[in-house]
């Protein structure tokens, strides 16, 4: 059972309020080591230099969307195995299928309750303490 406090997380969403909300949800779940970026363009070099265990990224973002971000992460020999959870809209069924093909670890449909986020994280990491 991994301790949530030991898991380093990168949150990527172009909406400031959403990033803040996800941060609070993660803090409520016991996560302490959280950083965030407003876009994949900023997040990609950041997770290469400051490696994290978990990336939680929105799909719908300008410049580089969540699928492109996922693809870039998976293609990197160093950070390629980082756990990646995608946030999608309810109508993004095709996105989820593409993400699965690219190797996403799980996905969460917005709007989500903290319990849903916890469940999806635990399906990857196991029960959190």
């Amino acid at each position: 059972m991994p301790a949530a406090s030991a898991i380093k997380v990168m949150v990527v969403d172009d909406q400031t309020s959403m990033r803040a909300m996800i941060r609070r949800a993660l803090q409520d779940l016991g996560f302490k080591d959280i950083r965030d970026k407003p876009g994949a363009v900023e997040a990609l070099p950041a997770v290469k230099t400051d490696r994290v265990h978990l990336i939680i990224s929105d799909y719908n973002m300008p410049d580089m969307d969540g699928l492109q971000f996922l693809e870039a992460v998976r293609a990197d020999p160093v950070i390629g195995k980082t756990v990646f959870i995608m946030l999608t809209g309810s109508a993004d069924r095709e996105v989820v299928q593409k993400a699965a093909a690219l190797g996403v670890n799980n996905y969460v449909v917005k709007p989500f309750a903290p319990a849903a986020l916890k469940e999806k994280i635990e399906r990857v990491f196991g029960e959190l303490t």
């Binding site: 909406q15 309020s17 409520d28 917005k110 709007p111 309750a113």
Partner: peptide
């Protein structure tokens, strides 16, 4: 649930902006 109260508004705004 302190997140639950605002996720509806945040989500509604995100849908509109996107």
């Amino acid at each position: 649930d302190r997140v639950g109260q605002e996720r509806y508004g945040v989500h509604a705004m995100e849908l509109l902006i996107n």
